[in-house]
């Protein structure tokens, strides 16, 4: 039994089927990278795991417990499953510190002092301690994204979902954010990430899945996918990525 099991998941918006039976197992401490063109269903899959999207068919299990369908305590699930978005989505009316402390205090039942201590420690470890009192609009994209990662980590999730978290960043800010993800990977955090950073995927992924039109077309180790892709669609996608100078 894998830690996170995604079992034949179907998702449609109206008549448009975005996920057409995705099956994927993620072991504990594993880092799984989802690659594929825009619209292939990477983000939707992540949002389904977090129950931000309802699925029409199939099942998702975490440690054997079904977390899809009626009767699941979604708030409890989301405490376990952190997500970081492409557009950061920090709360603009709260300071950095309040952004990080909100969920531990309101949801985790941590007292204010403990939450503050933890938030400050986390901010320090991503080099954001000086910005604790700042508001999100005062920060660069890279800084906002680091805060967003910390905000998700503050709930001590068992698995993190990263949804193209560097796609909206200026090239010179990408490195700082990836460095944090690299550290999380080395620390053994289970992660499922959608990314366009092929070089990074190659480096951290224990498993790479190529999504195409709502299905996982090919999966394997990073070496296997990037150096010896079997499917024509995968080959085509990767050659385009190489042409655009991103691999």
């Amino acid at each position: 039994m894998a830690f996170l099991e995604i079992d034949d998941v179907h998702k449609s918006y109206g008549h448009h089927e975005v996920l057409k039976g995705v099956t994927l197992n993620v072991e504990r401490h594993e880092v799984v990278c989802l690659i594929g063109a825009s619209g292939s269903g990477k983000s939707t899959l992540l949002r389904c795991v977090n129950a931000l999207e309802e699925i029409q068919q199939g099942e998702i299990r975490i440690e054997g417990d079904t977390v899809t369908g009626a009767g699941v305590d979604l708030n409890a699930l989301r405490r376990d499953v952190g997500i970081v978005f492409q557009s950061y989505n920090l709360f603009p009316h709260m300071s950095v510190l309040d952004n990080v402390m909100l969920a531990p205090i309101r949801v985790g039942g941590v007292n204010r002092r403990a939450a503050l201590e933890r938030a400050e420690r986390l901010l320090e470890s991503v080099g954001m301690q000086d910005k604790a009192k700042s508001y999100p609009d005062m920060l660069s994209g890279g800084q906002q994204q680091r805060v967003a990662i910390v905000r998700a980590l503050a709930m001590q999730p068992r698995v993190m979902l990263l949804d193209e978290i560097t796609a909206a960043l200026d090239p010179e800010l990408v490195g700082d954010v990836l460095e944090i993800v690299r550290e999380l990977a080395h620390g053994g955090l289970t992660m499922l990430l959608a990314t366009h950073e092929m070089g990074f995927a190659k480096e951290v992924a224990s498993q790479v899945c190529f999504l195409d039109a709502g299905q996982i077309l090919e999966r394997g180790s990073a070496q296997q996918i990037f150096e010896d892709p079997q499917e024509p669609r995968t080959q085509q996608f990767l050659s385009r990525v190489v042409k655009s100078g991103r691999l």
Partner: peptide, 13 residues
Amino acid sequence: PSQSAAARSLGLG
């Protein structure tokens, strides 16, 4: 809606 998604994803009801 991303604000609501961010809040809900942190476990807020």
